[in-house]
């Protein structure tokens, strides 16, 4: 290659590198929400693979919601925010149509104006960092057995039961909690299996074999869309959404979405069964 060609190539590489390094902060984020002046805003926080700006479809839960809302012919825009507290802000102070995400708790009074519709029921587990513990962590059925440990709670999570059991608590989001666990500042954290695997694969692949589930512990947690009755279309939208979701489960559209995201060890049909059982047990 001639020297002039090398220089040209170098100039192109430099312009691309320098250009792309600063475009993000000066460029607009071009999303569906931009130029979509819909009054029906749905907000969630980053919770991969259920909702994430890193996933082209928006994520597992986002796709279920998109399909159900479109099927019900409801106009809407979904936005993924970085923090859970921002999701609550948009519901309470900006009157969003609906929100979804983990650990979104409200007072009894606030709940009177909210309609919960479960869309996915997950298997949630405790995880720990094995190099920090000589012996495997095993669930004995009592949190007090973990009272010498520190629990990494999600910001906004209700941690009363941990505090009552004498477990120390540190707060953060999944990424920082995993980091704290690896640096031995936190002993165990809680997450849906599918969420933990996604985070490990994306950010902590070298620690894959060291992050292990606590033996003998798993519980079911429902992820619900929470419609806002104070929004002028809230109650009607919730009703139409629920009806369309039931139709999706029946005609296989729900299962088709699950198949895109479910882990190999968790059969897609289990998601359908868990949602049906959850609805049955809670008379929804």
């Amino acid at each position: 290659m001639k020297q002039s060609q090398c220089l040209k190539l170098f100039a192109v590489i430099v312009s691309i590198t320098v250009g792309s390094s600063h475009v993000w902060a000066t460029g607009p984020r071009v999303t569906q929400a931009l130029l979509s002046p819909s009054e029906n805003q749905i907000y969630t926080d980053d919770f991969p693979p259920f909702s994430s700006t890193d996933i082209s479809t928006g994520g597992f839960a986002a796709e279920i919601i998109n399909t159900a809302m479109k099927g019900a012919k409801l106009d809407f825009v979904q936005t993924t925010l970085p923090l859970q507290r921002m999701v609550k802000f948009y519901l309470k102070q900006e009157g969003a149509l609906a929100i979804y995400g983990r650990h979104l708790s409200f007072t009894k009074k606030e709940n009177k104006n909210l309609i919960y519709i479960p869309i996915v029921v997950n298997t949630e587990k405790y995880f720990y960092y094995s190099p920090a513990h000589k012996n495997e962590l095993t669930w004995t059925g009592n949190l007090k057995a973990f009272n010498s440990y520190t629990y990494g709670a999600q910001t906004g999570e209700n941690t009363d039961k941990y505090k009552k059991a004498g477990v120390r608590v540190q707060y953060g989001r999944t990424h920082s909690l995993l980091k704290k666990m690896i640096t031995k500042k936190v002993d165990f954290i809680s997450a849906p299996d599918i969420n933990m695997q996604w985070m490990i694969d994306k950010y902590f692949l070298t620690e894959k074999d060291n992050i292990k589930p606590v033996n003998g512990f798993s519980k079911l947690e429902a992820l619900s869309v929470i419609f806002n009755k104070r929004h002028k279309q809230g109650a009607l939208a919730a009703k139409a959404f629920k009806k369309e979701l039931a139709a999706m489960v029946k005609d296989g559209r729900y299962l088709a979405i699950v198949k895109k995201y479910a882990q190999a060890k968790d059969k897609p049909v289990n998601y359908v069964k868990r949602l049906a059982n959850y609805n049955k047990s809670s008379n929804r």
Binding site: S20, G27, P28, Q32, T53
Partner: peptide, 25 residues
């Protein structure tokens, strides 16, 4: 321009990397 529909028919210039949800557009 007041909605995404108003952008149809135009060729729009954006900075590389800011475009998300390409399939949607």
């Amino acid at each position: 321009i007041s909605s995404l529909d108003d952008l149809k028919g135009y060729k729009i210039g954006v900075i590389q990397g800011v475009l998300t949800e390409q399939a949607y557009f």
